[in-house]
């Protein structure tokens, strides 16, 4: 069973999906992604903050077509499967996302916007992680 994201839900989450917009607590300085209503540590207010997109692979696994959720089934069939990783962002939060190609734990990666899938006639874009290259700004 996949996670059905309606078009309005997708639209509301675009700052996170396209710009990696998280939240930083003004009181204790902890960074959250995705942003929450309040800091889970000290209950302080969170201010929007754009994360750098730089991170490091903590763990990665390969998803075969048989294990892909419905929204990614087409991609898995087309490519024979894809990599998913837990990535520790430079600002602290750990998040789960696809990799554009295989990367071992510890490898430095960079968030890039890619086409994820199409649902309800709306192409969904979001970030994946690619190996950090020499040309990265």
């Amino acid at each position: 069973m996949g996670a059905h994201i309606t078009a309005p839900m997708y639209r509301r989450s675009l700052p996170q999906r396209l710009r990696l917009e998280g939240g930083r607590c003004g009181a204790c300085g902890v960074t959250q992604f995705p942003p929450r209503a309040a800091c889970p540590r000290c209950r302080g207010p969170l201010e929007p903050v754009r994360l750098s997109g730089r991170g490091q692979v903590v763990a990665a696994t390969f998803i075969t077509p048989a294990g892909a959720p419905p929204e990614f089934a087409g991609q898995a069939r087309q490519t024979g499967g894809y990599w998913v990783a837990i990535v520790a962002l430079a600002e602290g939060p750990c998040i789960t996302a696809q990799l554009t190609q295989a990367a071992a734990p510890g490898a430095p990666v960079m968030a890039v916007v890619r086409r994820l899938y199409e649902e309800d006639g709306v192409v969904r874009y979001g970030f994946k992680f690619a190996p950090q290259g020499v040309g990265d700004p």
């Binding site: 991609q75 087309q78 490519t79 554009t100 890039v112 916007v113 890619r114 086409r115 994820l116 192409v123 874009y125 994946k128 040309g135 990265d136 700004p137």
Partner: peptide, 20 residues
């Protein structure tokens, strides 16, 4: 381009290569 890239994602990559 990879299968998950299209005109819009490639445009973003070019802007990213441009720098801040």
């Amino acid at each position: 381009p990879a299968p998950d890239e299209d005109a819009l994602t490639m445009a973003l990559e070019a802007v990213r290569a441009l720098g801040a």
